[in-house]
């Protein structure tokens, strides 16, 4: 049962990253590809009707994590106290900048929110990457499964690490590059004219960066987290996950010229591949320990009691079918290019 929930939470998280990833990415490149206020409005218009629905996946994932692995929720959230609260503030700033940017037609009001939107999107991607890095690297858990990390210590991956060290920063930068690329492909898919061309152009160097960072974090992660190699040896079918990422990455470049839609889907495949590789490589750990391996949180020692997990599986499936229905509906209504004047906002 714990394994089932491990897979379901990983799946929800992956859906979240793929969906909110493109609107975060659109935020990162927003200031660079949108040269005029109108073009920037179009960038926001391309994520307008969907971004908050995408963010709901994070809430639902958080809720499901709480339901299935309360120990992990408690230990992880209190140990990562500072970055999580900072992420909350960034979400507040980002959400308000999208919602309120178009509320006042003023050359003072709009640029302010545009910069805030770009800045908060960038930092969110960085923090999400760093968070993933922290989990892959492991945290200094004590015998009672507690830990607390300051934002940084000496930036080395030692026994007393902070949230930010060279490894987690590296993963953070990789996330920024990957989501920026994802966002650029989305904007190219959803907009027209100069903006579309510029978004497609910026995707090229971003792709190079993603290749570079992918190689770097792969090497670093194998060096830092032995479980990855152990799992690949034990379950060779697990090579399918990194293979998905590699194919995804390759196909982005192949499709970039030919089909915006296929290039974007290839980027989804890349993100899914990377995340599933990471969670596959961790299993059965959910929070590895940098101190004594016995202190680590695993799916076994952090799961909720059995009855609740069984009942929840029933309603979870029902809820997900409903959610999939709403999402298909929303995205279908919103298919095609965003035309000027059809803009989102007040």
């Amino acid at each position: 049962m714990a394994t089932v929930w491990f897979c379901l939470v990983s799946l929800m998280l992956a859906i979240y990253v793929v969906l909110d990833g493109f609107d975060l990415g659109a935020g990162i490149i927003h200031l660079f590809v949108g040269k005029t206020l109108e073009e920037r409005r179009a960038v926001i218009g391309s994520i307008g009707p969907v971004w908050d629905g995408n963010e709901v996946w994070l809430l639902a994932t958080g809720g499901t994590l709480y339901l299935a692995f309360p120990e992990l929720y408690a230990t992880g959230f209190s140990g990562f106290y500072l970055p999580l609260i900072i992420v909350l503030w960034l979400f507040v700033l980002r959400g308000t900048s999208i919602e309120f940017r178009n509320a006042v037609e003023s050359p003072v009001w709009i640029p302010f929110w545009d910069v805030l939107f770009g800045f908060s999107s960038l930092l969110l991607a960085l923090f999400f990457g760093a968070a993933l890095g922290n989990i892959m690297r492991g945290v200094p858990l004590d015998a009672s499964h507690r830990f607390f990390e300051p934002l940084w210590t000496n930036f080395r991956v030692g026994a007393v690490t902070g949230i930010l060290d060279w490894y987690t920063i590296l993963v953070g930068l990789a996330a920024v590059a990957a989501l920026a690329l994802h966002g650029a492909l989305w904007v190219a898919l959803k907009t027209e004219g100069d903006l579309e061309q510029r978004a497609a152009r910026v995707a090229r160097p971003l792709w190079g960066l993603v290749v570079l960072f992918t190689a770097l974090i792969t090497v670093a992660t194998f060096a830092l987290q032995p479980q990855l190699a152990i799992n690949l040896r034990r379950y060779p079918w697990g090579y399918a996950f990194p293979a998905l990422a590699i194919f995804g990455l390759a196909f982005i470049m192949i499709f970039l010229r030919r089909s915006r839609m296929k290039a974007f889907l290839a980027s989804c495949a890349y993100l899914l591949g990377m995340l599933s590789s990471a969670t596959f490589g961790l299993y059965p750990f959910v929070l590895p320990s940098r101190t004594d391996p016995a202190f680590a949180l695993t799916i076994e020692n952090s799961q909720a009691p059995a009855y609740g997990l069984h009942v929840a599986l029933v309603w979870w499936i029902v809820g997900m079918i409903l959610a999939a229905g709403y999402f298909t509906h929303t995205y279908r209504r919103f298919a095609g290019k965003v035309r000027p004047g059809e803009g989102y906002g007040h």
Partner: peptide
């Protein structure tokens, strides 16, 4: 969490 995780997760999955 074994109890109230249910209702909090349901809020996300059904209502949000």
């Amino acid at each position: 969490g074994g109890v109230i995780g249910q209702t909090l997760a349901m809020e996300g999955v059904f209502a949000f």
